[in-house]
């Protein structure tokens, strides 16, 4: 064997050695559980006794499960916060992108909720939404509005959660928009100004198309994150809210799997969630590939 091929051999061995831990981790903690979850979704798995194969029964039962529909509906309803958050964040980013004093301070303040513990801020909002003494209703009282008992009312519990998630995520979204705005070349704007374009035309034809990849990225990551919402309701409405109106799909999976030990049934829901997120991510990968050819 010559020196060159022995060098390659050595490189190959070390290469495999260095990627071995994440590969083992992938096999044990991702691939195996995923396949097991898939198999479990076709059984009457209860975590204790034998697993009996029952075909598509779990999936059929889901079709007639009102709580499953409710949890799905709630999860998607809460995603109404995504466009609201994106719009607010873009407006804020446009403001911050101008030469204004205190930009760094603003960025930091808007970002604080993002890094704050979700459990802690859920506890805080739980208190803020208190019907009699909470911050939200006391603020509304300044304008003579008598606020509801937000979390105890099935019509207000979801808007309450949306307000909270928008508040929590705004800093992150704004930060990404700001980075995108700053990367737009000045020359576009200068050319547009020479042509006498007004503010709205500039926004419509330059800014908006240029930040579109970030908008897309944010929509996708927000959908992925939003479909897994759990901590908020677990802390603020531990029973799933009035008439189960704030239970999310992960909340329902968690209840079924670890509360009722219906692990097969919960696995079926977990598979549906998994497939949904898999498709969303795949779309993003494809779009990224395409935009990579567009010259960044």
């Amino acid at each position: 064997m010559n020196i060159k091929s022995s060098l390659y051999r050595k490189e190959m061995i070390y290469g495999y050695l260095f990627i071995l831990p994440p590969l083992i981790g992938f096999l044990i903690f991702v691939l195996f559980p995923f396949l097991y979850s898939l198999y479990g979704s076709f059984t009457d798995w209860d975590g204790l006794g034998q697993m009996n194969f029952i075909g598509l029964d779990n999936y059929k039962d889901l079709l007639t499960d009102d709580l499953f529909y409710k949890a799905m509906f709630n999860t998607f309803f809460l995603m109404l916060g995504i466009p609201i958050g994106l719009l607010l964040a873009l407006l804020l980013a446009l403001g911050l992108n101008r030469k204004i004093p205190g930009t760094t301070t603003f960025r930091v303040i808007y970002y604080i909720p993002v890094i704050s513990s979700l459990a802690a801020v859920s506890i805080m909002w739980n208190w803020a939404y208190n019907g009699d003494y909470g911050l939200v209703n006391q603020f509304l009282a300044l304008f003579g509005i008598e606020g509801p008992n937000w979390l105890a009312n099935k019509d207000t519990v979801k808007p309450a959660l949306i307000i909270m998630t928008v508040w929590k995520g705004l800093g992150y979204t704004m930060l990404l928009y700001l980075a995108a705005l700053q990367s737009i070349s000045r020359t576009y704007y200068e050319a547009a100004e020479l042509d006498g374009a007004n503010g709205w035309q500039i926004f419509r034809n330059i800014t908006w198309p240029m930040v579109q990849p970030v908008t897309f990225f944010l929509v996708v990551t927000n959908i992925i994150g939003g479909s897994q919402i759990f901590t908020e309701m677990n802390i603020m409405t531990p029973t799933g809210g009035p008439e189960y109106s704030s239970a999310s799909i992960v909340f329902y999976i968690w209840q079924k799997a670890f509360g009722n030990l219906q692990m097969g049934y919960a696995s079926a829901m977990a598979m549906i969630l998994g497939i949904f997120i898999f498709i969303i991510t795949l779309v993003q990968f494809k779009m990224n590939e395409r935009s990579a050819y567009d010259g960044d």
């Binding site: 903690f29 991702v30 559980p33 995923f34 979850s37 759990f230 799997a257 969630l273 997120i277 991510t281």
Partner: peptide
């Protein structure tokens, strides 16, 4: 192999948590 690892980004934790727990 890198692509295989990347697929784990697409699989959410709630889908894996029940078998992992067992």
């Amino acid at each position: 192999l890198f692509l295989a690892l990347l697929t784990s980004i697409m699989i959410p934790y709630p889908t894996l948590m029940i078998p992992q727990f067992m």
